Simulated scan of single mutants.
Amino acid sequence: MTEPVLCPADPAPVTLIGPPLAPGPLVFLGDHAGALIPRSLGTLGVGEADRRRHIALDIGIGQLGRLLAEHFGATFVSQTYSRLVVDCNRAPFSPGAMPEVSDGTAIPGNTDLAETVRADRVAAIHEPYHQAIADLLAGRRAAGLPTILVALHSFTPVYAGKARPWQAGVIHGGPGSDYGRRVLAGLQGVQDLTVGDNLPYAFDDTDYTIPRHAFPNALQWLEIEIRQDLLGTPDQVAEVARWLAPVLRDAMEG
């Protein structure tokens, strides 16, 4: 018998912060908010410095999600474990869900994984996270509450040797993205802020969370990316929340 992915001493794979039946529509998601690795997996063969890099988590998003949830009296659904264990914004059995190499760093603990091992990680972490989102949405729907999904992500200032000038990026496309386009317009009006329109990433078929939860429920949604050098300290994260929150609020009125 193989050792369970999560043991009783490991934290739960998902945390809900804030009231699930908040009257306001915003629900914040942190697909890559956590950086923990289950005890059963050790370090995945990855050094400590790399386990703090963007390959392991979306830096700053855990705190940003908490601040925004507190500001709006909303819910933040936060993933606990590192995206290197299983990426919850990827189809569970896709190659990108458990990468063998990420941004040039080998992940020995993900090399030549058996399908049973992949299935165990999905069952322990990926599916409980998405089931928590589905249950939250079902509860809100039953209560007659409107919902807008806001998936929070962060990105590196430099990737593959190229500097990224955008301080924030709005990812939109497909059904339900009117809210995202209004947020894009609002951020473009923030003084001294350089905003990417589907940059540094664009919505594509690698995205999993929004297609799984927003599309079948006909929800408005937004994926927003914040550059990680703006999220390096608690004060910096608070400053991002300060200029982001009014834009998210105003876009609800469009």
Rank of each mutant, 00 (worst) to 15 (best):
36 L>I: 08
78 S>P: 11
89 N>W: 10
43 T>Q: 07
51 R>D: 13
26 L>I: 01
86 V>Q: 03
33 A>D: 07
43 T>V: 09
85 V>M: 06
80 T>W: 01
85 V>C: 05
41 L>I: 07
85 V>Q: 03
47 G>H: 02
40 S>K: 09
88 C>I: 14
48 E>F: 05
88 C>A: 15
91 A>E: 15
70 E>H: 10
61 I>Q: 11
74 A>M: 15
64 L>W: 09
34 G>F: 06
34 G>N: 09
83 R>I: 08
64 L>R: 00
90 R>I: 10
72 F>R: 08
28 F>C: 11
60 G>E: 12
74 A>Y: 07
30 G>V: 04
62 G>N: 10
37 I>R: 05
65 G>T: 03
31 D>W: 05
56 A>N: 05
62 G>Q: 11
67 L>C: 07
72 F>Q: 06
44 L>A: 06
37 I>W: 02
58 D>K: 09
59 I>D: 13
58 D>G: 00
63 Q>D: 11
90 R>Y: 15
72 F>G: 06
45 G>W: 06
31 D>V: 09
50 D>L: 07
46 V>C: 09
56 A>T: 12
58 D>P: 01
77 V>H: 01
52 R>G: 09
29 L>I: 12
56 A>H: 11
75 T>I: 00
68 L>F: 08
92 P>T: 14
33 A>G: 01
53 R>S: 15
58 D>Y: 12
33 A>P: 05
34 G>V: 11
64 L>I: 06
50 D>W: 13
68 L>H: 00
36 L>W: 07
91 A>N: 12
27 V>A: 05
85 V>Y: 02
34 G>A: 13
73 G>S: 05
55 I>K: 01
63 Q>W: 10
52 R>Y: 07
78 S>M: 11
91 A>S: 13
82 S>Y: 01
29 L>D: 09
78 S>G: 04
27 V>P: 00
37 I>K: 00
92 P>F: 08
38 P>S: 00
84 L>V: 11
65 G>H: 01
67 L>A: 03
30 G>E: 03
77 V>M: 10
71 H>G: 13
58 D>L: 04
68 L>A: 01
38 P>H: 05
32 H>R: 00
76 F>Q: 12
90 R>H: 13
63 Q>P: 14
58 D>I: 10
61 I>Y: 04
66 R>T: 12
61 I>P: 02
43 T>I: 04
59 I>F: 04
38 P>T: 09
84 L>Y: 11
77 V>Q: 04
49 A>L: 06
84 L>K: 06
28 F>Q: 04
82 S>R: 07
83 R>W: 07
37 I>P: 00
42 G>H: 10
51 R>T: 12
60 G>D: 03
61 I>R: 05
62 G>R: 08
30 G>L: 04
82 S>H: 10
71 H>V: 09
83 R>A: 02
55 I>H: 03
84 L>A: 02
88 C>W: 12
